[in-house]
Nucleic acid binder design. Sequence first.
DNA 1: CTTGACCTTGGAGTCGACTCCAAGGTCTAC
DNA 2: GTAGACCTTGGAGTCGACTCCAAGGTCAAG
Lengths: 141, 141
Amino acid sequence: MDGLKVSQLGARAGVSADTVRYYDRLGLLPATERSESGYRLYDERAVARLRQIRQAQAMGLRLSQIAELMRTLDGGECPCEETVEAMSERRAEIDAEIARLTALRDQLDAAIAAGETGECCDPCEDECVPEVLRPRKEVNP
Amino acid sequence: MDGLKVSQLGARAGVSADTVRYYDRLGLLPATERSESGYRLYDERAVARLRQIRQAQAMGLRLSQIAELMRTLDGGECPCEETVEAMSERRAEIDAEIARLTALRDQLDAAIAAGETGECCDPCEDECVPEVLRPRKEVNP
DNA sequence: CTTGACCTTGGAGTCGACTCCAAGGTCTAC
DNA sequence: GTAGACCTTGGAGTCGACTCCAAGGTCAAG
Protein backbone atom coordinates (compact mmCIF):
# COMPACT_ATOMS: atom_id res chain seq x y z
CA MET A 1 0.00 0.00 0.00
CA ASP A 2 1.79 3.12 -1.13
CA GLY A 3 0.69 6.62 -0.41
CA LEU A 4 0.39 8.58 2.78
CA LYS A 5 -2.38 7.93 5.23
CA VAL A 6 -4.10 10.84 6.98
CA SER A 7 -1.82 11.06 9.96
CA GLN A 8 1.29 10.67 7.81
CA LEU A 9 0.17 13.44 5.55
CA GLY A 10 -0.70 15.54 8.57
CA ALA A 11 2.73 14.96 10.10
CA ARG A 12 4.36 16.23 6.90
CA ALA A 13 2.72 19.59 7.38
CA GLY A 14 2.38 19.73 11.13
CA VAL A 15 -1.36 19.18 11.41
CA SER A 16 -3.47 16.45 12.99
CA ALA A 17 -5.18 13.61 11.17
CA ASP A 18 -8.49 15.12 12.21
CA THR A 19 -7.57 18.37 10.54
CA VAL A 20 -6.62 16.59 7.34
CA ARG A 21 -9.98 14.84 7.29
CA TYR A 22 -11.66 18.16 8.01
CA TYR A 23 -9.95 19.86 5.08
CA ASP A 24 -10.85 16.90 2.94
CA ARG A 25 -14.50 17.29 3.87
CA LEU A 26 -14.35 20.96 2.92
CA GLY A 27 -12.93 20.05 -0.44
CA LEU A 28 -9.60 21.78 0.15
CA LEU A 29 -7.51 18.78 -0.71
CA PRO A 30 -7.42 17.17 -4.14
CA ALA A 31 -9.87 14.28 -4.62
CA THR A 32 -8.45 11.34 -2.72
CA GLU A 33 -7.37 7.98 -3.92
CA ARG A 34 -8.63 5.28 -1.64
CA SER A 35 -7.11 1.94 -0.77
CA GLU A 36 -9.22 -1.17 -1.22
CA SER A 37 -10.23 -0.91 2.39
CA GLY A 38 -11.22 2.72 2.09
CA TYR A 39 -8.14 4.44 3.54
CA ARG A 40 -7.33 7.81 2.05
CA LEU A 41 -3.99 7.67 0.24
CA TYR A 42 -2.11 10.84 -0.52
CA ASP A 43 0.93 11.64 -2.62
CA GLU A 44 3.53 14.38 -2.66
CA ARG A 45 1.23 16.77 -4.43
CA ALA A 46 -1.13 16.51 -1.50
CA VAL A 47 1.73 17.39 0.84
CA ALA A 48 2.43 20.49 -1.20
CA ARG A 49 -1.23 21.37 -1.27
CA LEU A 50 -1.63 20.97 2.46
CA ARG A 51 1.40 23.17 3.10
CA GLN A 52 0.01 25.68 0.71
CA ILE A 53 -3.25 25.72 2.64
CA ARG A 54 -1.37 26.29 5.89
CA GLN A 55 0.63 29.03 4.29
CA ALA A 56 -2.52 30.74 3.10
CA GLN A 57 -4.00 30.40 6.56
CA ALA A 58 -0.90 31.85 8.13
CA MET A 59 -1.41 34.83 5.84
CA GLY A 60 -4.78 35.30 7.45
CA LEU A 61 -7.05 33.89 4.78
CA ARG A 62 -10.18 31.99 5.76
CA LEU A 63 -10.67 28.40 4.77
CA SER A 64 -13.65 29.45 2.66
CA GLN A 65 -11.43 31.84 0.70
CA ILE A 66 -8.72 29.23 0.38
CA ALA A 67 -11.30 26.78 -0.93
CA GLU A 68 -12.18 29.28 -3.65
CA LEU A 69 -8.56 29.72 -4.64
CA MET A 70 -8.14 25.97 -4.80
CA ARG A 71 -11.12 25.68 -7.09
CA THR A 72 -9.61 28.26 -9.42
CA LEU A 73 -6.30 26.49 -9.32
CA ASP A 74 -7.88 23.11 -10.02
CA GLY A 75 -9.77 24.69 -12.89
CA GLY A 76 -6.39 25.38 -14.46
CA GLU A 77 -6.62 29.13 -14.05
CA CYS A 78 -4.17 31.48 -12.45
CA PRO A 79 -5.35 32.42 -8.95
CA CYS A 80 -3.00 35.36 -8.52
CA GLU A 81 -5.47 38.15 -8.98
CA GLU A 82 -8.04 36.38 -6.85
CA THR A 83 -5.46 35.86 -4.16
CA VAL A 84 -4.70 39.56 -3.98
CA GLU A 85 -8.41 40.27 -3.78
CA ALA A 86 -8.90 37.76 -1.00
CA MET A 87 -5.97 39.20 0.93
CA SER A 88 -7.28 42.73 0.51
CA GLU A 89 -10.67 41.66 1.74
CA ARG A 90 -9.16 40.08 4.82
CA ARG A 91 -6.92 43.03 5.37
CA ALA A 92 -9.94 45.30 5.54
CA GLU A 93 -11.64 43.01 8.04
CA ILE A 94 -8.56 42.70 10.17
CA ASP A 95 -8.01 46.42 10.07
CA ALA A 96 -11.53 47.07 11.29
CA GLU A 97 -11.01 44.57 14.08
CA ILE A 98 -7.73 46.19 15.10
CA ALA A 99 -9.44 49.58 15.20
CA ARG A 100 -12.22 48.21 17.38
CA LEU A 101 -9.84 46.52 19.77
CA THR A 102 -7.51 49.48 19.96
CA ALA A 103 -10.35 51.79 20.93
CA LEU A 104 -11.41 49.25 23.53
CA ARG A 105 -7.90 48.98 24.89
CA ASP A 106 -7.53 52.73 25.20
CA GLN A 107 -10.81 52.92 27.06
CA LEU A 108 -9.71 50.14 29.34
CA ASP A 109 -6.40 51.82 30.02
CA ALA A 110 -8.13 54.98 31.06
CA ALA A 111 -10.59 53.10 33.22
CA ILE A 112 -7.88 51.01 34.87
CA ALA A 113 -5.84 54.11 35.62
CA ALA A 114 -8.90 55.82 37.07
CA GLY A 115 -9.79 52.74 39.07
CA GLU A 116 -6.31 52.40 40.53
CA THR A 117 -5.82 56.00 41.55
CA GLY A 118 -9.42 56.80 42.41
CA GLU A 119 -10.79 56.30 45.87
CA CYS A 120 -13.07 53.56 44.69
CA CYS A 121 -16.67 54.08 45.66
CA ASP A 122 -15.62 55.38 49.00
CA PRO A 123 -17.67 56.58 50.77
CA CYS A 124 -19.70 53.50 49.96
CA GLU A 125 -23.30 54.50 50.07
CA ASP A 126 -26.30 52.41 49.00
CA GLU A 127 -24.70 50.93 46.01
CA CYS A 128 -21.04 50.77 45.52
CA VAL A 129 -20.38 50.71 41.80
CA PRO A 130 -17.02 51.61 40.30
CA GLU A 131 -17.18 54.90 38.44
CA VAL A 132 -16.40 53.33 35.10
CA LEU A 133 -19.37 51.04 35.40
CA ARG A 134 -21.95 53.59 36.46
CA PRO A 135 -25.10 53.05 34.44
CA ARG A 136 -25.40 55.35 31.44
CA LYS A 137 -28.56 55.83 29.47
CA GLU A 138 -27.98 53.63 26.47
CA VAL A 139 -24.81 51.81 25.73
CA ASN A 140 -23.81 50.07 22.54
CA PRO A 141 -20.94 47.76 23.17
CA MET B 1 -49.85 45.13 36.77
CA ASP B 2 -46.98 47.43 37.58
CA GLY B 3 -43.40 46.82 36.64
CA LEU B 4 -41.63 46.63 33.33
CA LYS B 5 -42.02 43.63 31.08
CA VAL B 6 -39.00 42.24 29.23
CA SER B 7 -39.32 44.34 26.12
CA GLN B 8 -40.05 47.48 28.11
CA LEU B 9 -36.98 46.94 30.22
CA GLY B 10 -34.99 46.18 27.09
CA ALA B 11 -36.18 49.38 25.44
CA ARG B 12 -34.97 51.39 28.42
CA ALA B 13 -31.42 50.23 27.77
CA GLY B 14 -31.49 49.67 24.05
CA VAL B 15 -31.47 45.89 24.02
CA SER B 16 -33.94 43.31 22.78
CA ALA B 17 -36.38 41.32 24.91
CA ASP B 18 -34.43 38.21 23.95
CA THR B 19 -31.27 39.71 25.31
CA VAL B 20 -32.97 40.60 28.58
CA ARG B 21 -34.17 37.01 28.95
CA TYR B 22 -30.68 35.81 28.07
CA TYR B 23 -29.08 37.95 30.78
CA ASP B 24 -31.74 36.76 33.18
CA ARG B 25 -30.86 33.16 32.42
CA LEU B 26 -27.21 33.90 33.10
CA GLY B 27 -28.11 35.40 36.45
CA LEU B 28 -26.93 38.89 35.53
CA LEU B 29 -30.15 40.58 36.47
CA PRO B 30 -31.53 40.66 39.99
CA ALA B 31 -33.97 37.85 40.84
CA THR B 32 -37.19 38.69 39.07
CA GLU B 33 -40.59 39.30 40.48
CA ARG B 34 -43.21 37.51 38.46
CA SER B 35 -46.80 38.46 37.78
CA GLU B 36 -49.52 35.94 38.57
CA SER B 37 -49.34 34.72 35.01
CA GLY B 38 -45.59 34.33 35.11
CA TYR B 39 -44.47 37.52 33.36
CA ARG B 40 -41.16 38.93 34.53
CA LEU B 41 -41.71 42.31 36.15
CA TYR B 42 -38.79 44.69 36.57
CA ASP B 43 -38.35 47.94 38.43
CA GLU B 44 -36.06 50.93 38.13
CA ARG B 45 -33.23 49.16 39.85
CA ALA B 46 -33.30 46.59 37.07
CA VAL B 47 -33.02 49.38 34.52
CA ALA B 48 -29.94 50.67 36.29
CA ARG B 49 -28.51 47.20 36.50
CA LEU B 50 -29.09 46.50 32.84
CA ARG B 51 -27.44 49.77 31.87
CA GLN B 52 -24.58 48.92 34.14
CA ILE B 53 -24.17 45.59 32.40
CA ARG B 54 -24.12 47.30 29.01
CA GLN B 55 -21.60 49.79 30.28
CA ALA B 56 -19.36 47.03 31.51
CA GLN B 57 -19.70 45.27 28.18
CA ALA B 58 -18.85 48.44 26.33
CA MET B 59 -15.67 48.53 28.40
CA GLY B 60 -14.82 45.14 26.96
CA LEU B 61 -15.68 42.90 29.87
CA ARG B 62 -17.13 39.47 29.20
CA LEU B 63 -20.53 38.51 30.50
CA SER B 64 -18.92 35.88 32.69
CA GLN B 65 -16.77 38.56 34.33
CA ILE B 66 -19.73 40.87 34.69
CA ALA B 67 -21.67 38.06 36.33
CA GLU B 68 -18.90 37.74 38.90
CA LEU B 69 -18.94 41.43 39.65
CA MET B 70 -22.70 41.31 40.05
CA ARG B 71 -22.39 38.48 42.53
CA THR B 72 -19.92 40.52 44.59
CA LEU B 73 -22.18 43.52 44.42
CA ASP B 74 -25.22 41.52 45.46
CA GLY B 75 -23.20 40.08 48.30
CA GLY B 76 -22.94 43.62 49.61
CA GLU B 77 -19.23 43.93 48.95
CA CYS B 78 -17.39 46.59 47.03
CA PRO B 79 -16.52 45.31 43.54
CA CYS B 80 -13.99 48.04 42.75
CA GLU B 81 -10.84 46.06 43.16
CA GLU B 82 -12.32 43.11 41.34
CA THR B 83 -13.39 45.40 38.54
CA VAL B 84 -9.89 46.69 38.02
CA GLU B 85 -8.63 43.12 38.01
CA ALA B 86 -11.21 42.06 35.46
CA MET B 87 -10.37 45.02 33.25
CA SER B 88 -6.65 44.30 33.47
CA GLU B 89 -7.25 40.72 32.54
CA ARG B 90 -9.25 41.74 29.49
CA ARG B 91 -6.71 44.35 28.60
CA ALA B 92 -4.04 41.70 28.43
CA GLU B 93 -6.19 39.50 26.23
CA ILE B 94 -7.11 42.35 23.96
CA ASP B 95 -3.52 43.43 23.74
CA ALA B 96 -2.42 39.98 22.69
CA GLU B 97 -5.13 39.91 20.07
CA ILE B 98 -4.11 43.31 18.73
CA ALA B 99 -0.52 42.13 18.48
CA ARG B 100 -1.57 39.02 16.60
CA LEU B 101 -3.76 40.94 14.20
CA THR B 102 -1.20 43.66 13.65
CA ALA B 103 1.45 41.14 12.69
CA LEU B 104 -1.05 39.52 10.36
CA ARG B 105 -1.94 42.83 8.80
CA ASP B 106 1.68 43.73 8.19
CA GLN B 107 2.26 40.39 6.55
CA LEU B 108 -0.80 40.88 4.42
CA ASP B 109 0.30 44.35 3.39
CA ALA B 110 3.65 43.06 2.23
CA ALA B 111 2.02 40.19 0.39
CA ILE B 112 -0.55 42.41 -1.27
CA ALA B 113 2.15 44.84 -2.37
CA ALA B 114 4.22 41.99 -3.76
CA GLY B 115 1.18 40.49 -5.46
CA GLU B 116 0.22 43.75 -7.11
CA THR B 117 3.62 44.72 -8.43
CA GLY B 118 4.94 41.24 -9.12
CA GLU B 119 4.42 39.55 -12.45
CA CYS B 120 2.16 36.96 -10.88
CA CYS B 121 3.18 33.42 -11.70
CA ASP B 122 4.07 34.40 -15.20
CA PRO B 123 5.42 32.41 -16.93
CA CYS B 124 2.70 30.00 -15.75
CA GLU B 125 4.25 26.63 -15.70
CA ASP B 126 2.75 23.42 -14.30
CA GLU B 127 1.27 24.97 -11.27
CA CYS B 128 0.59 28.59 -11.00
CA VAL B 129 0.66 29.50 -7.35
CA PRO B 130 1.12 33.07 -6.14
CA GLU B 131 4.48 33.55 -4.51
CA VAL B 132 3.03 34.32 -1.10
CA LEU B 133 1.20 31.04 -1.06
CA ARG B 134 4.06 28.80 -2.11
CA PRO B 135 4.12 25.77 0.14
CA ARG B 136 6.61 26.02 3.01
CA LYS B 137 7.67 23.13 5.11
CA GLU B 138 5.57 23.60 8.22
CA VAL B 139 3.34 26.52 8.87
CA ASN B 140 1.67 27.49 12.12
CA PRO B 141 -1.09 29.95 11.39
C1' DC C 1 -65.48 36.97 21.34
C1' DT C 2 -61.85 37.67 18.55
C1' DT C 3 -57.71 39.84 16.98
C1' DG C 4 -53.15 40.96 17.63
C1' DA C 5 -49.49 42.11 20.42
C1' DC C 6 -47.32 40.67 23.92
C1' DC C 7 -45.49 36.95 27.27
C1' DT C 8 -43.63 31.99 28.69
C1' DT C 9 -40.31 27.81 27.98
C1' DG C 10 -36.64 24.85 26.27
C1' DG C 11 -33.94 24.24 22.68
C1' DA C 12 -31.59 24.98 18.32
C1' DG C 13 -28.87 27.91 15.04
C1' DT C 14 -25.09 31.36 13.97
C1' DC C 15 -19.91 32.25 13.02
C1' DG C 16 -14.81 29.54 12.30
C1' DA C 17 -11.72 26.05 12.73
C1' DC C 18 -11.19 22.64 14.61
C1' DT C 19 -11.46 18.53 18.20
C1' DC C 20 -13.36 14.50 20.07
C1' DC C 21 -16.45 10.69 20.13
C1' DA C 22 -18.29 5.84 19.40
C1' DA C 23 -18.75 1.94 16.79
C1' DG C 24 -16.81 -0.54 13.64
C1' DG C 25 -13.06 -2.10 10.08
C1' DT C 26 -7.92 -3.03 8.86
C1' DC C 27 -3.22 -3.85 9.14
C1' DT C 28 1.27 -5.31 11.24
C1' DA C 29 4.00 -7.65 14.58
C1' DC C 30 4.61 -11.17 17.73
C1' DG D 1 -4.75 -15.47 16.58
C1' DT D 2 -4.66 -11.61 19.03
C1' DA D 3 -3.06 -7.16 20.67
C1' DG D 4 -2.54 -2.57 19.55
C1' DA D 5 -2.15 1.07 16.40
C1' DC D 6 -4.10 2.72 12.87
C1' DC D 7 -8.26 3.78 9.66
C1' DT D 8 -13.47 4.77 8.45
C1' DT D 9 -18.08 7.47 9.24
C1' DG D 10 -21.46 10.77 10.90
C1' DG D 11 -22.28 13.61 14.37
C1' DA D 12 -21.68 16.38 18.50
C1' DG D 13 -18.99 19.71 21.38
C1' DT D 14 -16.09 24.03 21.97
C1' DC D 15 -15.88 29.33 22.55
C1' DG D 16 -19.27 34.05 23.15
C1' DA D 17 -23.17 36.57 22.81
C1' DC D 18 -26.72 36.48 21.15
C1' DT D 19 -30.98 35.39 17.87
C1' DC D 20 -34.81 32.80 16.42
C1' DC D 21 -38.07 29.19 16.81
C1' DA D 22 -42.52 26.68 18.02
C1' DA D 23 -46.14 25.80 20.92
C1' DG D 24 -48.69 27.59 24.11
C1' DG D 25 -50.57 31.29 27.62
C1' DT D 26 -52.19 36.34 28.66
C1' DC D 27 -54.01 40.73 28.11
C1' DA D 28 -56.20 45.11 26.33
C1' DA D 29 -58.97 47.02 22.71
C1' DG D 30 -62.81 46.88 19.50
